[in-house]
């Protein structure tokens, strides 16, 4: 956020001018008086205008503290993001998902796989939907692909039914397993997850373009953790921007910052 300087006959005049120009209320400005006005001698010699430096207060940033290019977030490897996200979101407990968890996933999963498949089929036949479940294990997580129903019923509005199914499956399968050994279960149908990822990629790239072009931070709409994670990962490859999340719970959103900052218009020397 850049500083701007305004001058006026008095300090009050200068502030009023600033408010008018920036179209904000005085309460939203940080004001620093650079020079008091001086009447001078007989209004001729030594007359000096008041000069103030103002800065538009960013309420969002004030609530969430001032951000800076933070190496913790920017030099991060993609796979570490889930950790940071969950860590900052719900504190220590979720943050314990460590590398060991990833390593121990080489253990044979056939039992969990068939359990997950049966459970999902059990839910589907009770809805009832006529659909089959195909299973594959990718990078230690179980992917369940529902085939046969192409009505979109199982996707729901913005994928919420699919997410609900996935959430319930994760909960029930990992009910008794300790945190480090949890198995990630992904439920997909009609290729929804891949399509969604493409949409997110487009949006991420568009916002980074916007940030780079305007040299101003660009905010994305609030979205759930897994979607934010995808955006963080995509934009971590772009060296000209960095991303951070702000807000709590369902209002948490990503802001894309350009690394090149807005040049200050009237900086003093």
């Amino acid at each position: 956020m850049s500083h701007m300087e305004f001058t006026g006959k008095t300090v009050r005049d200068a502030i009023a001018k600033a408010c008018e120009e920036l179209e904000v209320d005085e309460a939203l400005l940080d004001v620093e008086v650079l020079e008091e006005s001086a009447r001078g001698f007989l209004g001729l010699v030594g007359h000096r205008n008041a000069r103030v430096r103002v800065r538009k207060r960013d309420v969002l940033k004030e609530v969430l503290e001032v951000e800076r290019p933070d190496s913790r977030y920017t030099n991060i490897k993609p796979q570490e993001f889930s950790e940071i996200e969950s860590f900052s979101k719900s504190g220590l407990e979720d943050g314990k998902i460590t590398q060991e968890g990833a390593l121990s996933e080489n253990i044979d999963k056939s039992e969990i796989v068939s359990q997950a498949k049966e459970f999902l089929e059990g839910i589907l036949c009770r809805i009832p939907v006529e659909a089959a479940v195909e299973v594959s294990v990718v990078n230690g997580s179980i992917e369940l692909e529902i085939t046969g129903d192409r009505s979109g019923l199982l996707i729901g509005k913005r994928g919420q039914t699919l997410d609900a199914l996935q959430y319930i499956l994760n909960k029930s399968i990992n009910r008794e397993t300790p945190l480090e050994e949890k198995t990630e279960i992904i439920v997909d149908t009609e290729d929804y997850r891949r399509r969604k990822q493409e949409i997110l990629r487009d949006m991420a790239l568009r916002m980074s373009q916007k940030a780079k072009k305007s040299l101003m931070p660009a905010a994305l709409n609030p979205m759930p953790a897994n979607e934010r994670r995808i955006i963080h990962m995509i934009l971590s490859e772009d060296k000209e921007v960095y991303t951070k999340s702000y807000g709590e719970g369902p209002l948490r959103r990503i802001i894309v910052y350009p690394r090149k900052a807005m040049p200050n218009k009237r900086r003093r020397r």
Partner: peptide
């Protein structure tokens, strides 16, 4: 607690799945 979940998330998920059945 298991049925309701953190911030009612599990309860919400159950209702969402139930809604799809209701639609069907």
């Amino acid at each position: 607690g298991r049925i309701i979940g953190k911030h009612g998330r599990t309860a919400k998920a159950i209702r969402t799945v139930l809604n799809s059945a209701s639609t069907k």
